[in-house]
Simulated assay, not measured.
Amino acid sequence: MEQLQEGLTAEPELTIPEPLVIGRRPMVRPALTGLPDVDLRRPDSELDGADLPGLAVRAASIRGEAHRHLGLTRQDAMGFWQIDGTRLLACVADGLGSKALSHIGAAEACVSARNNIEDLFAPGTSGIQPEVFFEDIADDLMKCAGSKVNGRPVSPEDLSTTLVVALIDSEKLQATLMRVGDSEAMLLREETWTPCFPKKFEESISSSRTHALPHDTGQVEITVVDLRRGDMLLLCTDGLARPMGSELVSAQLGAWWGRSLVPALPTFLWQVSFRAKSHDDDRTAICVWTV
């Protein structure tokens, strides 16, 4: 045993760098201040990914520094599924911060999107019916609201969440995008970002209310994006979309994720964890590269 130990060489200690600070440094240092005291809490962070025929996927959802500091749960949720040999379904949801159980609504909305994927298509036609699809998701949230959590009744408002969904066809190089609320979809092509949904200027200046499921099924937006090899499609909550309004942040993410630079999973989690002053919300990103 002693001879064996003498022959062993100690592995060098690995150090993970602190998250990159982009722009001005936040005043509060990141801290985990205990487990959130909430029903069916979400893990602090999630990390997932896959390399599929024609597509590479990296996904991360992290609790914002404000929620960490206050000991609150992460209200974002995400999910992606391979539907068949060429199509991928990806979802990102953001539970409304003012609702105590919205993290349950966000998680349920993503699962429901997968369960109701067949309702995207009109019977007997090739057309897409996003309204029916989102109504089915809303119905599932309503059923969840009819139950109880730890003996307490849950109302539909308790589960309020935004939802953005992408159905990506790697063979046709096309993405069908649908959403209710302010979660975003953006296309990265040659390190240049382009929003996939048109911004409704008149709504942004007249109301601060965020459309959300299960009630706002009449507010479904849909768009179709043609892709090229080497593009990257991003689905994200406003915890990432808002800091991307800074040219410093969008340029850094473009440098990291442009030119078909698909990171390893630990690297991707570190990249999404960047810090920026005044941006401490939960942050979720699903990146899909056409390769």
Rank of each mutant, 00 (worst) to 15 (best):
T176L: 03
G7Q: 13
L14T: 12
T161A: 08
S102M: 04
A107S: 14
T237E: 07
A264Q: 13
C110D: 09
R179A: 15
Q252Y: 07
V57D: 09
C91H: 05
P153Q: 12
D39P: 00
A106T: 15
G146Q: 08
L240G: 02
T237D: 05
T284R: 04
L88K: 03
A138L: 09
E203N: 14
W270T: 13
R114G: 09
L227A: 05
G127A: 14
I16R: 05
A251K: 15
I62P: 03
R68E: 15
A166D: 02
K143L: 13
K277Y: 08
R68C: 14
E2K: 04
D280I: 01
G239L: 07
A138I: 14
I205E: 02
F201T: 11
R41L: 04
E190H: 08
F121P: 01
A122Q: 14
T15R: 11
S61G: 13
A276N: 13
R259C: 03
S160N: 12
A251D: 13
L235P: 00
S147C: 11
C196L: 03
F274C: 02
G71F: 06
R42V: 01
R42S: 15
M142I: 07
R152Q: 15
I286S: 00
E11D: 06
C144M: 11
P266Q: 08
Q75H: 10
P195G: 00
G97E: 08
V165L: 02
S246N: 07
P195C: 07
D231W: 10
N115I: 11
D281N: 14
D39Y: 06
S155Y: 12
A255K: 07
R242L: 14
V291D: 06
D158W: 10
L47P: 00
T217P: 10
E190M: 02
W289A: 09
F274L: 05
P153A: 05
I286T: 03
P198V: 02
F133T: 02
R283T: 14
R152H: 12
V57C: 09
L261I: 11
V21R: 11
D140M: 08
L187K: 05
E202M: 06
T125S: 14
G254P: 05
M1S: 13
S260H: 08
Q75E: 06
F274R: 08
Q75S: 07
A285R: 00
E46R: 10
T267D: 15
Q174H: 05
I286K: 00
E13N: 01
